[in-house]
């Protein structure tokens, strides 16, 4: 199955066999209002439609809940656990992003237990992953007073493809002096985007966007186990040998900058990346008839990256190679 935009490029080979029906357009019936569920959050009574998540319920009360692995347009994997809340009667905390509301629930979103778990999750991530290009995560760290330094100095980076070759069920014993990290060399194997898994928090978003939730390409998946779990192509082949079609949807959903436009990566390396000097222009992709919304990030009169708003009814944030990377052919190719 190709992407929608590719399909629409095909010449139609069908014809209408029956005349197009005339007359008033049928209207979509109003959906029956979902019955409401009443629950108590931080001592406040509220009611939300059946089937809502605790995240939606907290939001309706104006309570901010941190999330890392959750995104409106992806199936919740509830893996990061930064959104946990305390639910009366539950032995453990529960993930707000995926736990559905039930009548009579009593929920605490800012209890000491909640704050501790959120803080620890953030410390665990920031002590093992390079979060320098993850602004949201950094903001949460401030909010929860995370101190990733208390686990000791970072251990040495993995060399070459060491992390990709990790064997499940075995690891080198810690040296008692440093904290293990996922630091490893950046993967640069194509012209369009880079993969810097030293920055990967394993939120599964890219895997979902590449697979069932959007692209249906399945070029990347989680491999390995435990702390050695990683996002990988099969046998770690370079992207050009994989199923990747360079839709860039994985880049669009990555919350940490682990997946990055090559243009952005190179400008950052050269020290010329400057978000304050960038403007954003909304436009519609001109390659085909689907009409995807594009958000062009422009610096010094050059497009430096292309995103699509998650709110867009057309794209829900997802594009194909043409919308995502086609601009490279429009402007002067950069000198190598």
């Amino acid at each position: 199955m190709g992407s929608e935009s590719e399909l629409s490029e095909l010449q139609p080979t069908w014809q209408f066999l029956n005349p197009i029906p005339q007359g008033p357009l049928p209207t979509i019936p109003e959906p029956a209002a979902a019955p409401e569920v009443e629950l108590i959050i931080d001592g406040r009574e509220t009611s939300v439609p059946t089937g809502s998540t605790l995240l939606q319920a907290t939001k309706s009360l104006g309570i901010e809940t941190p999330t890392l692995c959750y995104l409106e347009n992806l199936t919740p994997v509830n893996a990061c656990r930064v959104c946990v809340v305390e639910l009366e009667g539950s032995r453990t905390l529960v993930p707000a992003c995926s736990r559905k509301v039930e009548a009579g629930m009593q929920v605490q979103t800012d209890s000491p237990r909640v704050r501790l778990s959120r803080r620890m999750v953030l410390e665990f991530l920031a002590s093992s992953v390079d979060v320098s290009t993850a602004p949201e995560l950094q903001q949460y760290m401030g909010q929860y007073a995370a101190e990733p330094e208390r686990y000791g100095p970072s251990g040495p980076p993995a060399l070459g493809n060491e992390r990709d070759a990790a064997v499940p069920g075995h690891h080198v014993a810690p040296d008692g002096a440093t904290a293990g990290t996922v630091e490893q060399p950046v993967k640069i194997d194509n012209e369009l985007y880079i993969r810097d898994y030293s920055k990967c928090i394993l939120c599964y978003k890219c895997v979902e966007a590449c697979g069932e939730d959007a692209q249906n390409t399945f070029a990347i998946a989680v491999a390995g186990r435990g702390f050695d779990a990683r996002i990988a192509t099969e046998y770690t082949v370079p992207l050009p040998d994989s199923a990747c079609v360079y839709c860039g949807n994985c880049i669009g959903v990555c919350p940490t900058g682990a997946l990055m436009f090559r243009s952005e990566y190179e400008m950052r390396e050269a020290g010329t990346w400057d978000e304050s000097a960038q403007s954003e222009t909304d436009t519609i992709c001109s390659y085909c008839g689907v009409g995807c919304n594009l958000q062009l990030h422009i610096q010094d009169n050059e497009i430096v990256k292309v995103m699509s708003p998650i709110e867009s009814g057309v794209t829900q944030g997802h594009l194909c190679i043409k919308g995502r990377f086609g601009w490279q052919f429009m402007q002067q190719p950069k000198k190598k």
Binding site: V77, F124, R225
Partner: peptide, 9 residues
Amino acid sequence: DESCGQCVP
């Protein structure tokens, strides 16, 4: 060794 690696904690 036996953690599946799915969740951060």
